[in-house]
């Protein structure tokens, strides 16, 4: 990694160095401000604002419902699965000094829209000025999501409490609280989506019928991507991975068909559709 970086630097030009220096400076400043602004929240042990590094998906699987036990193994799964894509990212960044947006590409090879971005970005981002600019943007974005976190965690905490008190809790209430509390604008999007996922999880789960004995004791998984329109209509679905057991595949499609239409997408979600992967796994019986 480093060797390459040195080679790139060799044709040294004064303006370029300066620019990069400023870039670094901005990043470090932003970090510092970020820590000052949000540090207290992280440190504070206040339940509703404790910030643990969690992703949306992790929260999802910790949803209430009578499968509380079942969701626990999924949590670990999610984590392990996420790590590999990140590793892949690093080389990209070093070699091409490319910017953040490119990450999306390898992270989510399934999603067509993101793949498109990859090809165009290569050209756009060649100049170092834009590298810096984008780095700054990223920091901004990052700080936003940082701010969002305590909120989502708070929601998560609420949800868990409700789950403990009442296993069949009303997700809708939680959503309302969230909407009222969240300041509006882009930063709410992540939580809105998380809540949306939570809602449709409950709706879809009820529709999943599969006799375990059909898996013949194997660990099998089927992955289906659904395309959700703003109205909540499922415009399309396709297999990302088949399980090799036709009944499990069929049961997954049944869940999609039975759950259509879903609730409308959150208003803060501005894209024309939302792609979501559904992963159905039947663990080996023992």
């Amino acid at each position: 990694m480093q060797t390459r970086a040195y080679i790139l630097d060799e044709p040294e030009t004064a303006p370029l160095t300066t620019l990069i220096f400023f870039g670094v400076s901005i990043i470090l400043h932003a970090l510092l401000f970020g820590i000052i602004a949000y540090g207290p929240k992280i440190i504070s042990s206040n339940k509703s604002y404790s910030s643990r590094p969690k992703s949306i998906n992790v929260k999802l699987v910790s949803l209430p419902g009578n499968a509380r036990k079942a969701t626990r193994p999924a949590r670990t799964k999610t984590r392990t699965k996420k790590t590999p894509p990140v590793k892949k990212k690093k080389p990209d960044l070093v070699l091409n000094k490319k910017t953040v947006k490119e990450k999306k590409v390898s992270l989510n090879p399934v999603k067509k829209t993101k793949i498109k971005k990859k090809s165009s970005k290569k050209h756009e981002t060649y100049s170092t000025t834009s590298v810096v600019r984008k780095a700054v943007k990223d920091i901004e974005r990052k700080t936003k999501s940082d701010r969002a976190k305590p909120v989502t965690d708070a929601i998560e905490e609420l949800k868990r409490k409700m789950a403990e008190s009442n296993p069949i809790n009303d997700i809708q209430t939680t959503v309302d609280e969230q909407e009222a509390g969240g300041g509006g604008g882009g930063e709410v999007l992540l939580e809105a989506l998380a809540m949306y996922q939570a809602e449709i999880y409950v709706q879809m789960r009820k529709n999943w019928a599969y006799p375990a004995s059909l898996s013949k004791g194997r660990d099998i998984q089927v992955v289906v991507t659904i395309k959700i329109l703003p109205t909540g209509k499922i415009a399309d679905h396709w297999f990302v991975k088949r399980s090799g057991e036709k009944n499990l595949d069929s049961s997954a499609v049944n869940v999609v068909l039975k759950s259509d239409p879903l609730p409308p997408l959150p208003r803060s979600y501005k894209k024309p559709f939302y792609l979501l992967q559904l992963r159905f796994s039947q663990e080996g019986l023992r």
Partner: peptide, 28 residues
């Protein structure tokens, strides 16, 4: 820079990967 950038993008990158896990059929 590389380390920081990688560190910064990580959570954002996670957020991109939207999926739901269903680990046990509701109806047996």
């Amino acid at each position: 820079i590389i380390a920081f950038t990688a560190f910064l993008i990580t959570p954002a990158a996670f957020a991109q990967q939207d999926y739901i896990d269903f680990t046990k059929p509701f109806l047996r």
